[in-house]
Design a binder for these strands. Structure first.
Length: 739
DNA sequence: TTCTGTTGACTGTAGACAGCATGTC
DNA sequence: CTACAGTCAACAGAA
């Protein structure tokens, strides 16, 4: 099917043809045949890179031309900005695009004034909770990666959000995009959508298992030269010799860095001088952004053409690794599942070095087929690689046969709704009441009766769980139920409304409220621990070496905690210690302990510190608001901590740190040099600042606090005025980007 | 003596969404 | 409460 045959406006056809797209891929054509452009609901269960985005685009453009508005829901922030950037290329058609995620709102006067809005599923839910008016104007909803419905943590939110949207806009077109899964038909039926099911890919994918010196594909073998005792390394070397890149998936961070280290010593021998030179530059960049051990190790690996990638890396390191791989300078990334979904980073060959992963409940477990298929699907860069290969490794013949059968030849599992537990439902039962989707028990059951869970499984068990949730919410004064009515009427309290809007688990809300009421003498640690004790906070794991240290801390700070569980209740106490350990990390963070030290004290990466601080800041914000509502005195204390967690700094730096371009480290330098406030800083000489933080940063800081830099520069140390101009230009640009 | 391989005890285990108001090193 | 892989030290046997 050709683009020009489609029932879409001329200019749009020309746009695609100009960008080299003349013909639709088979699954796309099938979608069109199924009424994609006539507003019909559609579920496309097709591989990544088989043109899902274009499919969604066509439908959105068509709808917008007819006066519609589209919402594009994604599971990850990174994906949201990727799509946002892509859709902004549609600007020539007068299409306005907005983005809304937890850490990034586009500065459009009103998000709803856009034609396409990209948002994460949680953000969408949050927008719904806050009664965003334009939600009712949405005519086309695209749900990317719907198979995430199966995820224990985040599936329920996606499910309820879709249900709410369908309820709100019954005539709305829904386009759901999914990986190939077992029960795609069932999901399509729930969505009242037609189904496009296909394994078609623009680049061939060969899946195989390595055993006995060769990759065994279905029906053929490929011998791999043995240059090292490690098979995965041999596979990597083979790929590079053939001019490809490799993605290696590992089960733990340690293995990740371990493989990068050992394999890099072999890889380096295959690289020429030119590449090594560029890699060295990249390595230096890594080292300049931190003196942590991981930075050094990563830099050393990158010098040899290999990198590792996991959530412990800080964001700049992650970006360097991703970009370096895209530029084909880094030949191998050894990664945890961070790269399995999400980011678009394909490679010639994917090696699944470890198909088992640790689960706290069941020990080492083989990963689901769906997950394997997602990793394998990363193999083969469209239009760049002749084909893609994915390889599992077997140690024995029995294992080899098993892997072939259970992964290569297997079909992905069915998707099962995870909505049916109290933990998953609590927050959604509350928001359903707050938002008026249900004002009595019967309506609640009706609403929940239209979820995928109810579609898929018996509803009687669901009703029981919902009643438990209502009971919990009533007990904690978030919901009032009036049993004199039939059906029992449900309404929300001020507390319930606030908890719903803050987007925290009602259990977190209850814990914080309870803690605030009980707390007697409150200091930083008290509130930090309170926040760390909520289910929304991911606590640190206690390692054997931690017990003594954390326990000592508890003993010497026993007055700081609102409640200390009995030491003989081993499980409770163990949990408590984990919470305290987490609070201790945050405490070091806000006391300006260098990030390098924190990573060592707690055996975490820089990325973990930021992730924890991010969550803590959000929960501390909730604490501030809850304290305000309760009219207890700790609200301003919590507010202060919220800011300190944001910047990771002491109270006396708050003024300096609010200046753009000044973080915890620079603020401390300025403070120690006597510039303790904004007023002091305004009086500062450029030359002095320049010595302190470097010429560029100094100029940047001065311009950011409204001091005319050029005057000051003119008088003191001459600085290349070109540098300064470009600097200021750049500043202007980044600023207007967000206007 | 030095190198290499085996055994057994011990240890540690992936990721990432949300509020609010603007910008780390 | 589960189970595995990687690491390290101690030691035996080969070179």
């Amino acid at each position: 099917m050709l683009i020009k045959e489609l029932d879409i406006p001329e200019d749009i056809i020309r746009f695609y043809e100009d960008s080299g797209i003349k013909e639709l891929y088979p699954p796309q054509a099938e979608a069109v045949d199924n009424g994609l452009l006539e507003g019909k609901n559609l579920l496309a269960a097709i591989p990544t890179a088989s043109g899902k985005t274009l499919l969604a685009e066509l439908a959105m453009l068509k709808a917008i031309r007819n006066g519609g508005k589209a919402l594009y829901i994604v599971p990850l922030r990174a994906l949201a900005s990727e799509k946002f950037d892509r859709f902004r290329e549609l600007a020539p058609f007068g299409i306005k695009v907005g983005i809304s995620t937890g850490d990034f709102d586009s500065r459009d006067e009103w998000l709803g004034a856009n034609d396409i809005i990209v948002a994460t599923s949680e953000k969408t839910d949050s927008l719904l909770r806050n009664g965003t008016s334009w939600m009712e104007e949405i005519t086309t909803i695209v749900v990317d990666e719907v198979h995430l419905l199966d995820s224990k943590n985040r599936g329920p939110t996606l499910e309820v959000t879709i249900t709410k949207l369908m309820r709100l806009n019954p005539d709305c077109q829904i386009i759901a995009l999914s990986a190939t899964v077992g029960n795609a038909r069932e999901m399509a039926d729930w969505l009242e959508a037609s189904l496009v099911l296909s394994e078609w890919r623009p680049t061939d994918l060969h899946e195989g298992v390595f055993f006995g010196e060769a990759i065994n594909f279905l029906g053929k073998q490929k011998k791999i030269e043995r240059r090292d005792k490690d098979n995965a390394t041999n596979l990597v070397l083979d790929t590079i010799s053939e001019g490809g890149q490799c993605l290696v998936f590992e089960s733990s961070r340690r293995n990740c860095t371990g493989f990068a280290k050992t394999s890099s010593n072999k890889v380096v021998k295959l690289l020429d001088r030119e590449i090594l030179g560029k890699l060295a530059v990249m390595a230096e960049e890594v080292e300049s952004t931190g003196e942590t051990d991981t930075a050094k190790v990563l830099a050393n690996c990158i010098r040899k053409g290999v990198a590792f990638h996991h959530a412990g890396l800080n964001s700049s390191h992650r970006k360097i690794v991703e970009d370096g791989f895209r530029q084909n300078l880094i030949k191998v990334i050894s990664s945890t599942p961070t790269l399995a979904a999400g980011l678009n980073l394909p490679a010639r060959r994917v090696i699944v070095r470890n198909y088992r992963r640790f689960d706290a409940n069941f020990g080492m477990q083989p990963i689901p087929v769906l997950e394997y298929k997602q990793m394998a699907g990363r193999a083969g860069r469209p239009h760049l690689d002749p084909y893609g290969e994915s390889v599992l490794l077997a140690k024995e013949y029995a294992e080899f046969e098993q892997l072939l059968e259970n992964y290569v030849e297997a079909d992905a599992e069915d998707i099962w709704s995870k909505l049916g537990t109290e933990n998953a439902l609590r927050t959604h039962v509350l928001s359903t009441i707050v938002n008026g989707f249900a004002s009595d028990r019967k309506q609640m059951m009706e609403f929940m009766g239209s979820t995928f869970f109810a579609f898929q499984q018996d509803t009687w068990s669901l009703e029981e769980v919902i009643d438990d949730c209502i009971e919990y919410l009533a007990e904690h004064e978030m919901v009032v139920k009036d049993e004199s009515h039939d059906p029992i009427s449900l309404s929300s309290t001020q507390l319930g409304k606030l908890v719903s809007m803050l987007y925290i688990d009602p259990m977190s809300g209850a814990k914080i409220v309870d803690g605030l009421k009980k707390a007697v003498n409150v200091n930083d640690m008290t509130l930090l621990h309170l926040v760390c004790s909520t289910p929304d906070m991911r606590q640190l794991y206690m390692r054997s070496a931690d017990y003594a240290r954390v326990n000592d801390f508890v003993m010497s700070h026993s007055d700081d905690f609102i409640e200390i569980p009995n030491e003989f209740k081993a499980i409770d106490y163990e949990w408590f210690l984990g919470e305290v350990k987490t609070a201790m990390l945050l405490d070091e963070w806000i006391r300006e302990i260098p990030a390098d030290d924190i990573t060592q004290h707690f055996n975490v990466g820089e990325g973990d510190i930021h992730a924890l601080a991010d969550t803590a800041e959000w929960l501390m914000h909730a604490t501030t608001k809850l304290a305000e509502l309760l009219k207890v005195e700790h609200s301003s204390h919590a507010h202060g901590l919220e800011k300190r967690i944001h910047y990771g700094a002491s109270p006396e730096l708050m003024q300096l740190v609010s200046i753009r371009g000044v973080g915890r480290v620079r603020a401390r330098k300025l403070y120690e040099a006597g510039f303790v406030s904004l007023a002091e800083l305004k009086k500062a000489e450029y030359s002095v600042l320049s010595k302190l933080v470097g010429p560029k940063v100094a100029a940047n800081i001065l311009s950011n606090i409204g001091v005319r830099v050029k005057d000051k520069v003119g008088k003191s140390t001459p600085i290349n005025s070109n540098t300064l101009d470009t600097l200021l230009d750049k500043e202007q640009k980044t600023f207007s980007d967000f206007q």
